[in-house]
Amino acid sequence: MSLIEVRDLVVNFHSRRERRRGRPNAVDGVSLAVRPDETLAVVGESGSGKTTVARCVAGLQTPQAGTVLFDGAPVGRVAKRPPEVRRAIQMVFQDPAASLNPRMTVRSIIAETWRTHRSAAPADRSWDDAIAELLRDVGLDPGVADRRAPSLSGGQCQRVSIARALALRPRLLVCDEAVSALDVSVQSQILRLLAGLRASRELAILFITHDLGVVRQIADRVAVMHQGRLVETATADDLFERPGHPYTRKLLDAALDLEGA
């Protein structure tokens, strides 16, 4: 069974009057599903609706129509979700610095999530030990625990937000351009971590990105969005070897590679 499923999702940010005048939907009838142990990448140009789909999954956006199902049961806005569902779906955003409270230390940022979700807090050892391990997992020095976001680099902030998301032992991680702004050497470290977690913890990942090279490295399946609609969903191998839709072919043709430049 799917861990998360969206059915016939429709989101429109325009007023009702504008909608009657035919302003297009930001998301227009999108259906997709993520299995408990797979990485589904969503690709497409900016404005194609990728982030809006992710926000619906995370319960940060209410669709005009359609449903989001978690473990087969419909879930609504984040505030109305049972605590267990809220814990199980974690999101990592593109702009890391903006998603971390600048006045809190990294330690209190992570500890706060455990105060909210007691069930995920470490029971068998001290919180400090668990925080140190999480930071090491994302390639940070445990000493970072005492620092605040403004004194960290962009790449370090991004890893802190990934550590915070993982602290809750989620079943689904929604990554919206989570590695796009990182330098390549840091990027491969995070990708390794995510691939390892997926293999070891039954973590599903909804991975939104415009970097097709990264998609090819970590995705099991790929959904291609164009102007609010899904134009193609395929296994990663099929999509890159035998793109079915002309728009997919256009995206692949535009992508640059180091080789053959």
């Binding site: 840091v186 491969s188 470290q189 090819r216 490295q217 890159f240 640059l256």
Partner: peptide, 26 residues
């Protein structure tokens, strides 16, 4: 060299590169 091998390819499937230890020096 480390930068070059970290760039994921689109036209062929590459494994995720072995990351460099540590963080960029400030």
């Amino acid at each position: 060299r480390a930068l070059v091998v970290s760039v994921p390819a689109v036209r062929s499937r590459t494994a995720i590169a072995e990351p460099l230890p540590g963080s960029p020096a400030s």
